[in-house]
C-alpha cells in the first residue's frame, strides 16, 4: 500500500520533470529570449548585458537546473509583453479559472452520473433514448459553438444573463470569488454550463456503457438467481462496480476541463488563466506559456494522484495486492 503510493509519487515527479524540461526548451526554441525582452532599438552592449544577466551563456544543464530551482519557488520570470512577474499574473487569474472548472466539474459529474445510471437501468425507456440521442448531439457540439449559442440566446435575445466578463467578485484576501454575490453567480453560470456540457455527455455515455457491461456479468446474474431485489442489484451491486472505471476517467476529464477552459474563457472573455494563455501564444510570450504548461501538468498530476488513492479505497483487489 505504502509502496504503491510511493511509486505513484515517483511517477508524478518524473512527469513533472519531463514537463518542466519541455517548458524550459520553449525558451530556447521560440525566438531569441533577448530579442523578446528588449525592443529593436537596444544596443549591442545592452544585449550582451542582458544575456549575462539571464545566464544565457551558461551550459544548458546549468540553465535547466536554474530554471527548475526558480520554477519550484514559483518564479517563471517576467512576462515579455506585460513586463510583470508571471507568478503574480497567474495568482491574479487563478481563482477565476479554478472556480469555473469547479462549477463545471460538479455540473458534469452530478448530471452525467445521474443520467448515465438512469439510461443504464431504463435501457429501453423513451426518456433514455431521448437522453442518448441528445448526448450524441452533445459530443458533436464544439465548445465554442455552445458558448456562442448560449450567449446569443440568453444574453443577446433574452437579455437574462451577462454575455461576458466576470462581474460581482468579492475579495477574500487575494482570492477573488464569484460565489458570494448574485451577479457573480449570474456571470459564472453560462461559461460553466458551456464548459461542462461536453464532459457531461462523455461521463453519461461512459457510465451507461459501464453499467450495461456490469449488468452482463455473472455476479449480477447470480444476484438475480438469489432473488435479490432490482433495487439492491442496481444500486448495491452494479453501481459500485460501474464507478470503478468511471473514477479513473474523471481524472482525465478534469484535465479536459482545464484545456477547454481556454476556449470557454475566450468566448466569454472570462479573465482566467486560459485567456491569458491564448494571448501569450498570440504574442509568443514564452514565460507565461511555460508557466501555464507546468500549471496544467501539475493540476493533472495532483488530480490523478487523488484519483489513484480513491481507486485504492474503492477497489479491495488493489488495496490488498498492492501492499
Amino acid at each position: 500500500m505504502l509502496s504503491f503510493i510511493l511509486r505513484r509519487l515517483g511517477q508524478s515527479v518524473l512527469v513533472m520533470a519531463a514537463v518542466s524540461l519541455i517548458s524550459f526548451s520553449l525558451f530556447n526554441f521560440v525566438g531569441d529570449p533577448v530579442n523578446n525582452m528588449v525592443g529593436q532599438e537596444a544596443t549591442r552592449e545592452d544585449r550582451v548585458f542582458i544575456r549575462q544577466e539571464l545566464g544565457l551563456d551558461d551550459p544548458i544543464p546549468v540553465q535547466y537546473f536554474r530554471f527548475l530551482g526558480n520554477a519550484l519557488q514559483g518564479d517563471f520570470g517576467l512576462s515579455y509583453r506585460i513586463k510583470r512577474p508571471v507568478n503574480e499574473l497567474i495568482k491574479e487569474r487563478l481563482p477565476a479559472t479554478l472556480e469555473l472548472v469547479l462549477v463545471s466539474a460538479v455540473i458534469a459529474l452530478v448530471f452525467g452520473i445521474a443520467a448515465g445510471v438512469y439510461t443504464g437501468i431504463r435501457r429501453n425507456g423513451w426518456f433514455s433514448k431521448f437522453i442518448l440521442s441528445g448526448s450524441l448531439v452533445g459530443v458533436s457540439l464544439p465548445t465554442f459553438i455552445i458558448g456562442i449559442g448560449l450567449i446569443y440566446l440568453f444574453a443577446v435575445t433574452l437579455r437574462w444573463l451577462p454575455s461576458s466578463g466576470r462581474a460581482g467578485v468579492v475579495e477574500l484576501g487575494w482570492w477573488k470569488t464569484s460565489f458570494l454575490s448574485v451577479d457573480g453567480w449570474r456571470s459564472i453560470i453560462l461559461p460553466a454550463i458551456t464548459l461542462s456540457l461536453f464532459q457531461l455527455t462523455m461521463i453519461l455515455r461512459l457510465v451507461r456503457s459501464e453499467m450495461l457491461e456490469v449488468m452482463q456479468t455473472d455476479y449480477i446474474k447470480f444476484a438475480r438467481a438469489r432473488g435479490l431485489s432490482e433495487r439492491a442489484i442496481n444500486f448495491v451491486h452494479a453501481l459500485k462496480n460501474t464507478l470503478v472505471p468511471v473514477i479513473t476517467i474523471i481524472g482525465l476529464n478534469i484535465g479536459g476541463l482545464i484545456a477547454f477552459s481556454v476556449i470557454t474563457e475566450t468566448v466569454f472573455q472570462w479573465p482566467g488563466t486560459g485567456l491569458m494563455f491564448i494571448q501569450a501564444v498570440d504574442f509568443a510570450d514564452v514565460p507565461i506559456m511555460a508557466a501555464y504548461l507546468c500549471f496544467v501538468a501539475l493540476v493533472f498530476v495532483i488530480v490523478n494522484l487523488v484519483v489513484d488513492l480513491l481507486y485504492v479505497l474503492i477497489d479491495p483487489r488493489i488495496r490488498i495486492a498492492g501492499r
Binding site: T217, Y219, A223, H237, P316
Partner: peptide, 8 residues
C-alpha cells in the same frame, strides 16, 4: 471467479 461481486 466471476459469480461473486468483487467489491463486496
Amino acid at each position: 471467479q466471476t459469480s461473486l461481486n468483487p467489491l463486496l
